[in-house]
Design a protein around this nucleic acid. Structure first.
Lengths: 200, 200
DNA sequence: GTTTTTATACTGACCGGTCAGTTCAATCAC
DNA sequence: GTGATTGAACTGACCGGTCAGTATAAAAAC
């Protein structure tokens, strides 16, 4: 059980499912399509996952796991180089952009599901969302504690707003201006964040 | 044709469809459900709209029409009172929050579909998105032309980022902290936007 | 001012297709 | 030789769209 071979099959199924569901949505994506895209028999899907829904839930956990790990590592590395927590924040924005550039399909799918209610996987989604927001909020809190950011900062709301800013800007970048470099996008967002927008 | 009665039926169908699709997504929402929620027979749906997809597309146009009108009015009123374009921007943020508070279901649905590809209504979505972003970008451009914002400002990307900031913060507010007042949320976003985040 | 006609709006049973999930004997790979 | 995969057939619930018929109200005919 859980052999390397099986792991590889599951990975193929994740990759097939993520692009199809990002394009078409969960309900319009058929299990037959997923199996075909993954180059696997339909029976294999049900040998590896209890249901279509469970495949999707594990996919969510898998993807958000990658994101949070990447954000955490960026934050740690960012604070280590300069000792300033705002640099950790900036490094996290960069890591977010990297993630979205690398896994655009997962990001689309995540956004599409995030604020839906009454879905089978709602509790799973709430948990993984909490994981991701916590990483951002923690860095914000550290920066406030260190006196780098105002004590009046509304941490949870700001974490959400930052998350949204990066998310929407990056998705628009991917969808409508894919020729731009990541450095370019990163610079524009950093500027906006650091209040260097006002003229003079 | 286009009688008051028919208009009323279409309105009922919009209202029924928007909440159901926001909760469940387009594909998981059945025409039977929409009809039942609207208190109307299934045939009536097809008497008023050519297909489920067309109902959805007209719903998108209808909703984004409301949003852009509201943003435009806010921007005009905002610039009139003080003559400063950054106040128009702030007024637009407020109008965005108002809209999301008033039509949360439409907002959810719009976000969920915005970055999907390969969907029947993609072109419709692209058009209405363009309408909305243009309103924001226009105000940004006016502010830059008036010397209130830096000339180096990346207008389209900043417009997207602002849009995302307000969108995600507001959806999180609605979903996870609905007890907070709109003034409170508005203040936090204004602060973030105007660079009053850094301490000191 | 009552009957007839017409146009529009609405109804709901029904049909044909689709799809998640099941089953299982046969084959493969380590 | 045991765990993993295949492939194909099958089931049954579900759903988008259709259509013959009904309801309503206003105009036309008498």
């Amino acid at each position: 059980m859980n052999s390397a071979r099986r792991q590889a099959t599951r990975q193929k199924l994740y990759e097939a499912a993520v692009t199809l569901i990002a394009e078409q949505g969960f309900s319009s994506t058929t299990v037959d399509e997923i199996a075909e895209r993954a180059g696997v028999a339909k029976g294999t899907v049900y040998y590896n996952f209890a249901s279509k829904t469970e495949l999707f839930e594990e996919l969510l956990r898998h993807g958000v796991g990658l994101l949070t790990r990447s954000l955490r590592e960026a934050a740690e590395a960012g604070v280590k180089t300069s000792g300033r927590h705002v640099d950790a924040l900036d490094a996290m924005i960069r890591a977010g952009l990297d993630f979205i550039a690398r896994y655009p399909a997962f990001t689309q799918l995540f956004v599409a599901e995030l604020w839906r209610t009454n879905r089978a996987w709602q509790s799973t989604l709430l948990m993984v969302r909490q994981d991701a927001v916590t990483v951002v909020a923690t860095v914000l809190k550290d920066a406030v504690d260190a006196g780098e950011l105002s004590e009046e900062l509304d941490i949870p709301l700001t974490a959400s707003a930052l998350f949204g800013m990066v998310l929407v800007a990056a998705l628009d970048w991917q969808a409508f201006q894919p020729e731009r470099s990541i450095d370019d996008v990163h610079a524009a967002l950093s500027r906006l964040l650091q209040g260097r927008v006002a003229s003079g």
